[in-house]
Each structure stands twice: as structure tokens, then as C-alpha cells.
Lab assay of single mutants.
Amino acid sequence: TFYNFIMGFQNDNTPFGILAEHVSEDKAFPRLEERHQVIRAYVMSNYTDHQLIETTNRAISLYMANL
């Protein structure tokens, strides 16, 4: 899942690491979701930090390219 992918960046001092920290603390994050459209919609609806949203979009693109 995307959640498992992004958790691989925990403790990294990178934008993906920052995203992983936010996702791990977000109890409502769709952890079992595999459809990138649902993940993107969730982030757009629940996150207000523009940098975090952009990082999510980049992470989703990388995740999709590696499926």
C-alpha cells in the first residue's frame, strides 16, 4: 500500500520523511487504501500545508512508477 511505501521514509530528513511522520500520526489516514485517487483526495481534503500536499503528489507518482 501507499502507507507502507511512505513509512519506509520514516526518520529520513527529507520531504518524504516529513510526510511519513505526518501520515504515521494521522489516525484517520487510509492505511489500507491502494487507489492513489482516494489517497490524493484524502490529503487534499485533510491537509492544509501546501508543501505536504506537493510532497504527497510526488510520493504517489514515485509509488505508482514502482508498482
Rank of each mutant, 00 (worst) to 15 (best):
R40M: 15
A59F: 04
A41Y: 09
F29Q: 00
I18N: 08
L32E: 13
M44D: 08
E34V: 15
Y42R: 01
N57P: 02
S45M: 12
H50M: 13
R40I: 15
P30S: 02
L19D: 01
E25Y: 10
Q51L: 14
E21Q: 15
F5C: 02
N4R: 07
R40E: 08
H22K: 14
A28Q: 12
M64W: 08
A41C: 11
T1A: 07
T14R: 03
K27P: 14
F29I: 07
F29T: 13
E21N: 15
A28V: 06
Q37N: 12
S61N: 11
S61G: 10
I60K: 00
T55Q: 06
Q51N: 13
D26H: 01
A41T: 09
N13T: 08
E33H: 04
F2T: 01
L32K: 11
S61V: 14
G8L: 12
Y47M: 04
E33V: 05
V43P: 00
G8S: 14
K27G: 09
M44A: 11
A28L: 13
Q10M: 15
E25H: 15
H50C: 11
A65V: 10
L32W: 13
K27L: 11
M64S: 07
M7S: 04
T55S: 07
S61I: 14
E54D: 10
N13M: 07
D49P: 04
E34I: 15
V23K: 02
N13D: 12
A20F: 06
Q10K: 15
I53T: 04
D12Q: 14
I18K: 14
E34P: 09
R58E: 08
F16G: 01
N46V: 09
N46W: 06
R35T: 06
H22M: 09
D49E: 07
E25G: 14
M64Y: 09
G8Q: 15
F2M: 02
M64N: 07
E54M: 10
S45H: 09
F2D: 01
P15A: 12
N57V: 11
E34S: 15
I6N: 00
A28F: 14
Q37R: 08
Y63T: 01
M44I: 11
Y42F: 03
S61A: 15
Q10I: 15
E21L: 15
H22N: 05
F9L: 04
A41V: 08
Y3V: 02
Q51I: 13
D12P: 07
M7Q: 06
Y42Q: 00
A28T: 14
N57C: 12
E33P: 03
D49Y: 13
F16A: 02
D49W: 05
N11I: 05
D26G: 03
M44G: 07
T56F: 15
R58I: 10
Y3L: 02
H50K: 14
L32P: 04
Y3T: 01
I6W: 04
M7T: 05
N4H: 11
Y42K: 01
A65Q: 12
V38W: 07
E25K: 15
S45T: 12
L62Q: 08
M44K: 09
F29R: 15
N13C: 11
M44W: 07
Q37S: 12
V23D: 05
A41P: 00
A20P: 01
F2Q: 00
Y3P: 00
L52R: 01
R35G: 07
E21M: 15
M7V: 06
R40F: 12
Q10G: 06
R35V: 05
S24L: 12
T48Q: 12
R35L: 06
F5M: 01
H50G: 10
N66S: 14
P30A: 03
A41D: 14
A59Y: 06
V23T: 02
I6G: 00
T1S: 13
S45Q: 14
I53R: 10
F16Q: 02
N57K: 11
A20G: 02
T1L: 07
V43E: 00
H22I: 13
S61H: 12
Y47H: 01
M64R: 09
D12S: 14
N57M: 15
L67H: 11
N57A: 09
F5H: 00
N46Y: 08
F5P: 00
R31N: 04
F5T: 00
S45G: 09
S45K: 12
Q51Y: 11
I6T: 01
G17P: 03
A28G: 13
I60P: 00
M7C: 05
A28H: 14
L52K: 02
L67C: 12
H36N: 06
R35E: 08
T48R: 09
S24P: 04
A28W: 12
F29S: 13
E54R: 09
T55G: 03
G17I: 06
R35Y: 05
L19E: 02
Y63I: 06
I6K: 00
I18Q: 12
Y3S: 00
I60S: 00
H22L: 11
Y3C: 02
E25V: 11
T1P: 08
M7N: 02
N4G: 10
Y42E: 03
H36L: 15
S45D: 13
N13V: 06
R58T: 07
M64Q: 09
F16M: 10
T48E: 10
S24I: 09
E54T: 08
R31T: 06
H36D: 07
Y63G: 00
M44H: 08
R58S: 07
A41W: 10
H22C: 08
D12I: 07
A65F: 10
A28R: 10
N57T: 08
S24Y: 13
T1N: 09
T1C: 06
M7G: 01
Q10D: 05
V43K: 00
Y47L: 03
I6Y: 05
K27E: 12
D12A: 09
N4D: 14
E25D: 08
L67S: 11
N13I: 06
T55P: 02
R31I: 07
N66G: 13
N57L: 15
E21Y: 13
E33M: 05
M64C: 12
H36G: 14
D26Q: 07
H22V: 14
K27D: 10
N4M: 11
D26K: 03
T14Q: 03
A20V: 05
A41K: 09
H22Q: 07
Q37C: 13
I53M: 07
N11E: 06
V43Q: 01
I39F: 05
Y63D: 01
M7Y: 03
I39V: 09
G8E: 09
Q37P: 05
T55F: 08
Q37F: 10
R35Q: 09
Y47K: 01
G8D: 07
H36A: 15
F2W: 04
F29E: 03
I53D: 02
V43Y: 03
T14G: 15
S45F: 08
M64T: 09
E34H: 15
Y47W: 14
N11W: 09
Q37L: 09
D26Y: 06
Y47G: 02
M44V: 10
Y47P: 02
I6M: 07
M44Q: 11
A28K: 12
E21T: 14
A20T: 03
D12K: 12
L67W: 08
I39D: 01
L67N: 11
L32Y: 14
Q37K: 07
F9N: 01
R35D: 15
P15N: 07
L32D: 14
A41G: 06
I18P: 02
K27C: 09
V23A: 04
